[in-house]
C-alpha cells in the first residue's frame, strides 16, 4: 500500500488503515525508505546537519572553479577569451535543467504519494531554478555577442531554453495562484509533468536541428571533446554550483517547514483560547 501523508500541523499522519490501527492500539506502520523524510521534524534535523557543509563546499568549489576559469585556463583558439563565460553559462544551463527534473520528481511524489514535503520542495525549487535559467540565458546572450555577433537568434537550443524559463515562471505563478494551496500544488504538479517534455528537446536540439549553438562537448557516453585544461575548471565550477543549488533549496525548504510549523502552533493557540 502506498503511504499517504496528512498536512503539517496535524499530529496524526497516515492513511485510513493507519488510523484504524491506532484505534485498535496496534503500533502504526513506520514509513520506510525516503518516505521517512516526509516527517518535517526528521527533515529539519537532517537539513540542519547537511546544509552548512554543502553550502560551504559549494561556495568554495564555485570560487575555485571560476577563478581557475578566469585567470588560469587558456583562451580558446576560436572563441578567444569569451570562452571564460562558459564556466558560468554551462553550469547554470545544467542546473536549470536539473532543477526542472527535480520539480517533475516532486510532482510525481506529490500526485502519487501526496508527500507534503514534495509540495513545499516544488514551491522552493521554482525560484532557484528560474534564477539559474535566467542566468543561463543572460550569460549565453553575453557570450553570443562577441562570438556570433548577435545577442539572440531564434535557434532551437536558445528557444527551448527560453521555453524552460517561461515554464518555471508559469510554475511559480500557478503554485501560488489558488486560495486553497492543495489545488495550487496539484495544478503546478501537472504543469511540471507536462513541461518536462522540454528537457529532451533542449538536450537533443543541437542534434535534431541545424542550430547556431554548438553541439555537446561533454557526454555521458563518449569521451569529452574539450581540452583538459578547460574541462577541469568547468567540472569544478559545475560541482560547486550544484552543491550551492542543493544548499539553497535545502535552506529554503527548511525555512518553509518552520513557517508552516509556526502557523500551526499559532493556529492551535487561537483555537484553544
Amino acid at each position: 500500500m502506498l503511504p499517504c501523508f496528512k498536512p503539517f500541523g496535524l499530529q496524526t499522519t497516515g492513511s485510513l488503515l493507519y488510523r484504524t490501527a491506532v484505534d485498535a492500539t496496534v503500533s502504526p506502520p513506520r514509513p520506510r525508505g525516503w518516505h521517512r523524510f516526509a516527517n518535517p521534524g526528521q527533515f529539519l534535523r537532517l537539513a540542519a546537519r547537511v546544509t552548512p557543509p554543502v553550502a560551504w563546499a559549494g561556495g568554495i568549489l564555485t570560487a575555485v572553479g571560476l577563478f581557475w576559469g578566469l585567470f588560469i585556463a587558456p583562451a580558446d583558439w576560436q572563441q578567444g577569451n569569451a570562452v571564460r563565460i562558459m564556466y558560468l553559462h554551462v553550469p547554470s544551463a545544467w542546473l536549470a535543467s536539473a532543477g526542472y527534473m527535480a520539480l517533475a520528481a516532486c510532482a510525481v511524489a506529490s500526485l502519487v504519494w501526496r508527500h507534503p514535503l514534495a509540495d513545499l520542495a516544488a514551491v522552493e525549487i521554482g525560484p532557484v531554478g528560474a534564477a539559474f535559467a535566467a542566468l543561463c540565458l543572460v550569460t549565453g546572450s553575453l557570450w553570443g555577442r562577441p562570438t556570433w555577433g548577435t545577442y539572440w537568434v531564434w535557434d532551437a537550443r536558445l528557444t527551448s531554453m527560453l521555453v524552460l524559463f517561461f515554464l518555471y515562471l508559469g510554475h511559480i505563478a500557478l503554485i501560488r495562484a489558488f486560495d486553497d494551496p492543495q489545488r495550487g500544488y496539484r495544478a503546478a504538479s501537472i504543469l511540471a509533468l507536462i513541461g518536462v517534455v522540454d528537457l529532451p528537446i533542449i538536450h537533443f536540439s543541437v542534434q535534431w536541428w541545424n542550430t547556431l549553438h554548438q553541439g555537446n562537448s561533454i557526454s555521458l557516453t563518449s569521451a569529452p571533446k574539450m581540452y583538459i585544461g578547460m574541462l577541469a575548471p568547468l567540472m569544478v565550477s559545475a560541482l560547486g554550483f550544484t552543491l550551492l543549488f542543493a544548499a539553497l533549496v535545502l535552506a529554503r525548504l527548511s525555512a518553509a517547514v518552520m513557517e508552516r510549523r509556526t502557523r500551526a502552533v499559532l493556529l492551535a493557540e487561537v483555537r484553544s483560547a
Binding site: 571560476l66 577569451n81 569569451a82 558560468l88 534564477a131 535566467a134 542566468l135 543572460v138 550569460t139 553575453l142
Partner: peptide, 19 residues
C-alpha cells in the same frame, strides 16, 4: 571584438543573482 566587457558583465550578473 574585445570580450572583456562581456566577461565582466556576465560575472557581475552571476554575482548579483547568486548573491
Amino acid at each position: 571584438m574585445n570580450a572583456l566587457p562581456f566577461i565582466v558583465a556576465s560575472y557581475t550578473v552571476a554575482a548579483v543573482v547568486v548573491g
